[in-house]
Computed example of a mutant assay.
Amino acid sequence: MTTLLLHCGHARAAVHADDGALLAVLAAQCRPWITAQPATRVPPGTWTVRIGDADAGARVPSRTGASVRLRPDHRLLHLPAPAPCDDTEAAVRPVVRLLRALLRRQLAASGAMFLEAAVLALDGGGLALVGGARAGKTTTLVAALRHLHGTLIANDEISLHLARSEQRTGAEPGVHGQLIARGYPRAIEVRRDALTYLGAAADRLAAAADPGSPPQALSLTPHRLAAALEAPLADAVALSALVLLARGTGRPRLQRLTGPDAAAVADHLTVADSYESWLQPHLPAQDPDPRGADRLLQAVPVWRLTQPLTDLQTSADLLAELAHHPEASR
């Protein structure tokens, strides 16, 4: 049996499997957000996922798409070995989902906050595009990556970590700052009704999308989306600004927010994991701290980008300028 030890910031988990090739695919799908290394020993107390044919523990109502069994006394989770198939990405998807839940819940326990936001890095500074469903996060992210040659950090459900500007344990080289945004391996859905606003990028995304995408959206792994847009990937970035997205007419415009308007970012704080609720007694994930917005506002400026999706080039230009001058007033 082969073992991988996985880390995401200060959180860790392990995976055991007989199929080394499956673990190699898993490690590739987790990078760069979760690092995976072969291990001969797992530290005591580490949550462990075992992939194999032997059942262990009680079955839980997992939303990973696989049958999951739990032995809480050993912090052990069991998944059956996937049936042989050509789609290795699909075979490891339930494991990635389970690891994401385990790691995010551990990070929440150490003080991380979680936010509905897409994140990209431009010239080393990070911008978080904040909004709920259908706010335009993915569409704006794709346009900015395409026009500005930015780095993809995350499409949604980021974690935020307050850190000193000096060296951080587990940080990527060069990532410093007060508020660190971290992404996770998570499928990206690009709504088909938004493709008309994306120009040539729409054809690239359609060619890279999962053939089994739902009727209303193109489904892509972040690796495939980044490759289609010729954008690099990174696990984390120090944020320069939070950008609340709003729909509007006329030319896109940025407005610096303060007071209650800026505090609206708190509406988009979310829980670490809303999918694997059966983990709650064993690895609790608390509701968002109402004081979280104050911590965010003290760390980075908040802006509102009001835009029609018909002028994403101008929106991208505004974001590029904001990345260089996040404190400037307009």
Rank of each mutant, 00 (worst) to 15 (best):
V300S: 07
P185L: 02
A285D: 15
T40D: 15
A227I: 08
L318H: 13
V130C: 04
G126P: 12
P222Q: 01
R224H: 12
I180G: 12
L239C: 07
E89D: 12
A217G: 05
N155W: 00
L179W: 06
V300K: 07
R71E: 15
A109V: 14
Y197L: 06
L309P: 15
L99C: 15
L141W: 00
A202G: 13
T169S: 08
R192Q: 06
T88N: 06
A263M: 11
P260Q: 01
L23A: 02
V68K: 05
D261R: 01
K137Y: 01
G136K: 05
A133H: 11
H282D: 14
G248W: 08
R224V: 09
L22K: 06
L319R: 07
A143E: 08
A17V: 07
D210M: 12
G20Q: 06
L98E: 10
A207V: 15
D193A: 05
L152N: 06
A208W: 15
A285M: 10
P32M: 02
H16N: 11
A13K: 07
A187R: 05
Y275C: 14
A238H: 03
W278H: 13
A187N: 02
A293V: 01
T35F: 02
A17E: 10
V130M: 06
L244T: 00
L23N: 02
L22N: 00
E157P: 02
L148A: 15
A83Y: 03
L145W: 08
L4Q: 03
Q286R: 11
L70W: 14
A117R: 03
G250H: 02
H176R: 09
L239K: 05
T88E: 13
P72M: 06
S165D: 10
V25T: 12
R247A: 14
G45T: 09
G136C: 11
R251N: 13
L107W: 12
V300H: 01
E230S: 04
G65H: 12
V60G: 11
H176L: 10
E230C: 02
R256G: 07
R291Y: 11
H147Y: 12
R186I: 08
A200L: 08
T310N: 08
V142K: 02
A272S: 13
I188W: 03
A39H: 06
G111S: 13
P232S: 04
G170F: 08
R31D: 14
V175W: 04
R71H: 09
P260R: 06
L233A: 00
T258N: 14
T306E: 12
A135E: 00
R330S: 08
R295W: 13
L283R: 11
W47N: 09
T64H: 09
D273A: 09
R41V: 15
V190H: 08
A227N: 06
S110H: 14
T196C: 14
T88D: 11
L98V: 14
P301S: 12
L198A: 05
R93E: 13
A128P: 03
Q167K: 02
L26E: 03
A262H: 02
V190F: 05
R168H: 01
R182D: 03
V190K: 04
C30H: 01
E157S: 10
